[in-house]
Design a protein around this nucleic acid. Sequence first.
RNA 1: GUGGGUGUAGCUCAGUUGGCUAGAGCGCAGGAUUGUGGCUCCUGAGGUCGUGGGUUCAAGCCCCAUCACCCACCCCA
Length: 420
Amino acid sequence: MNVKAPRGTNDILPPLSLQWQYVEKVYRDLMAVYNYHEARTPIFEYTELFQRGIGDTTDVVEKEMYTFTDKGGRSVTLRPEGTASIVRAFMENKLYGQSLPVKFYYIGPMFRYERPQAGRFRQFHQLGVEVFGSNDPALDAEVIILGINYLNKLGLKNLQLYINSIGCPECRKEYFRVFRTYLEDYHDVLCKDCQGRLERNPMRILDCKEESCSKAVKEAPRVLDYLCDDCREHFEEVKVYLNNLGLDYIIDPNIVRGLDYYTNTVFEVKYAGLGAQDTVLAGGRYNGLAEELGGKAVPGVGFAMGMERLMLTLEKESAELPGEPDLDLFIVTIGDKAKKAAFKYIYQLRNKGYISEIDYMERSVKSQMKAADRMNAKYTVILVEDELCKGKAILKNMQNGEQMEISLDNLVEEIEEYIK
RNA sequence: GUGGGUGUAGCUCAGUUGGCUAGAGCGCAGGAUUGUGGCUCCUGAGGUCGUGGGUUCAAGCCCCAUCACCCACCCCA
């Protein structure tokens, strides 16, 4: 075996896959309660969608996309995130004509060409939501509480919510002017990346980890202090709704998010102890994205969370997760005729919903019992070829070791009686 | 893309200054119990020592390269 899974990809196998299914089910169930419904969009899109949506100057677009040319000569890209596609789908299907807001959720794989590390992979999975058509701060708060509500449902407690507002393009104009003026004195101190950002994307200097940059920025003016009246009011309202629910949060003026489409509210939910990649859930409002993609101006807000990080967090918290369920029963057979009969009975039992197994390895009785035990079978049925003619089989309770004779004629019914 | 660490059986890991047929525990298979699990005991299967070069009489061990994984940077979920 010399072919391995590509770097940064993972096989999700049992029992892990059962945990994934559980986590997804809790998600879907909660979404239904909040009246969010699933949107399934293509896993690849025309490259242009992400270039325009996420932003040409972002790291994701500049160096992390899986982009290739298809046989028709079109440039397509494996989606690096979910929002752009869903906005595209919303516009393309003219859903703005519906009663608003429209609430979606999604689950699926995303792709980014990066060096893997703890909590980060090249193919990873996100659970997300997107709400379109309203600028109501109540929706910002709803999306936040929905995310936290979900994480709590999974048993996570030690979470910290960080929020900020980065305003709209209007108030950012004034802010950028002040910010750039402030940074003029520090120009030479900034790292190369940030010197470039000064022109193209000044806000991202705020969350640069380079020591000289974070020093330079320490006393810098903050977006929060330059919000226009509407944006300030909007952020205040979001906070009112959060306070209303008694939700704890930290206002962190330095979270600005790495994707260009965010406006107003941005937030992150972190879990300490995950390592460097400690953001489990993140999102914000993106009122300009639809228009940026060439559609009408439709406001939106949403979040995304990383499945792999979520699973890491659940592990750290020792959250209760389901494993493979115990067997209801295992049919042990002695002899070929018994095996044939068992094959029929197990079909009937499975039809009734009992989780059941028989031996496929030509094992001895002892080994079949062992196998049954390994699978935590609650009962075993022992079918002996020589005794089929007597019309009897043995039913054994694996918990207390008791066994009894049951008749073959209505074997399934008799078993049902005892199993209940 | 950059830096550091690791790579020996299915899993977790030993392997002494390079020296004979590469080990343990767990797991798996069979048996002790000629038709019955969990405990115990016995036996067995299973290894290109990540891969490719090199040094050497001799390499799991030393050197180089490469790949993968882990961790961190950048960035992000």
